[in-house]
Simulated scan of single mutants.
Amino acid sequence: MTTRRDAVHDTLRHSKGFRSAQDVYAEMRLHGAKIGLTTVYRALQALADCGQVDVLRTDEGESVYRACASDDHHHHLVCRRCGHTVEVAGPAVERWAEAIGSEHGFTGITHTVEVFGTCSSCSAPARVG
């Protein structure tokens, strides 16, 4: 599984933006990899579990994946149109999550935050001429 997991991770490292398991599978098959879709799903889950890939849920509920650019805890700013993603730190979010958890007697607080919008390239007016 390690070799296949490394191949899946390598595919994500060379991809722009978030990709579905089906996208990763199709790209790998296109390049001659002999791998099954179930194996791709398992590899993505293992990579997510160990923090090597980020996972987002789309509005349709599908999980999409991207190789982490940072080993540190981070959040994402994601363009709704093109998928351009920026990893951002969120110290205020970290403090809020700990405070709200503590306020309600929770420990071992974890969280994920994704902020969606339209990037400057997608929101720029089209040039005529």
Rank of each mutant, 00 (worst) to 15 (best):
T2Y: 11
D6N: 15
D6S: 11
D6R: 13
V8C: 10
H9T: 03
H9P: 01
D10E: 15
F18T: 01
F18K: 01
R19S: 10
R19C: 04
A21F: 00
Q22N: 11
Y25R: 03
Y25E: 03
M28S: 02
R29N: 01
A33E: 14
K34G: 05
G36D: 04
T39H: 04
V40W: 00
V40S: 00
A43L: 01
A43P: 04
A46E: 11
A46V: 06
L47N: 01
A48C: 05
D49I: 03
C50S: 14
G51F: 01
D54A: 09
V55R: 06
V55A: 02
D59N: 13
V64E: 02
V64D: 00
C68W: 02
D72R: 13
D72C: 08
D72Q: 14
H73G: 05
H73Q: 05
H73T: 10
H74F: 06
H76S: 05
H76W: 05
L77M: 09
V78E: 04
R81C: 14
R81N: 15
R81H: 15
V86T: 13
E87D: 15
V88N: 02
A89W: 09
P91L: 08
P91W: 06
P91M: 07
R95T: 14
E98L: 11
I100P: 01
I100F: 09
F106H: 12
T110P: 04
T112A: 08
E114C: 05
V115F: 03
C119F: 08
C119Y: 09
P125D: 12
R127M: 11
